[in-house]
Design a protein around this nucleic acid. Structure first.
Lengths: 122, 122
DNA sequence: ATACTTGTATTAAGTTAATAATACAAGGAG
DNA sequence: CTCCTTGTATTATTAACTTAATACAAGTAT
């Protein structure tokens, strides 16, 4: 899964979000070393400053730790990781229900749509 | 349901999206008259120019028709309305599944989360 | 010790979006 | 006809974000 940058909002926030998703999905496992700022920036096609900002936020969240010259690693704190993971999932679900409600659908209808959804249907 | 403006992306796009949601939800029914640009702008707390841009897009979509001096009305074309409504719902569902997949969940898990979700759980 | 890697900070410039303040166009109401 | 409402267009200014180009700080390896 590559980087997905759109013009919807500050790029550093999108990067921050996608970094969390990668950690949640196990792309960067607990305790593992992250690529360097410059590598990540090149990979995502953004300025190092922008990636840095995203990483600084990740650190503020307590999700990664910075070892001055040895790069960054994902936290060893499983509880913090689990909490983030739950929060992201909860946000997805809540966003879905809110969105459907805005379109005039009931909670029940929203559930049914998901149940009957065929993958790869476009 | 009030206006929900965030710093995530161009405001006029957010307004455009939310206007579609309102039409879908029946806040502005088929053939009904919309508030004036200036009213909508005041209501949403944005500049009239910004609201105008959102409405111009709505018209380009064929969802509203403009009567030069008599304001704007929602289209009478039920087919166009239904198509938009379906598209918005499809986008919601697709976005949900994509998001959960990014977090490392399977399709099946995503379905189960929705089924067991309790409303008002925060 | 010296060079290299890595994170961090700074400053300037360029781009885009939003706002503000008007002005114009066109139809309806009195 | 004249005024009012409504949509539309223009121009300038402001603010935010991103990029660019460096420079610095602090460990590690040779």
């Amino acid at each position: 899964m590559g980087w997905n940058i759109s013009d919807s909002g500050p790029i550093w926030m999108q990067l921050h979000q996608q970094l969390m998703q990668r950690i949640s999905a196990g792309v960067y496992p607990k305790g593992s070393k992250l690529p360097t700022v410059r590598e990540l920036a090149a990979e995502a096609g953004v300025n190092p400053n922008t990636m840095q900002r995203a990483l600084a936020q990740l650190e503020a969240d307590g999700l990664v730790v910075t070892n001055r010259t040895a790069g960054r690693t994902v936290t060893e704190d499983g509880e913090v990781l689990a909490r983030m993971c739950r929060r992201l999932a909860r946000d997805q679900i809540q966003t879905y229900f809110d969105g459907m409600k805005r379109l005039g659908f009931t909670h029940q209808q929203a559930v049914e749509f998901v149940q009957t959804w065929k993958e790869e249907e476009r």
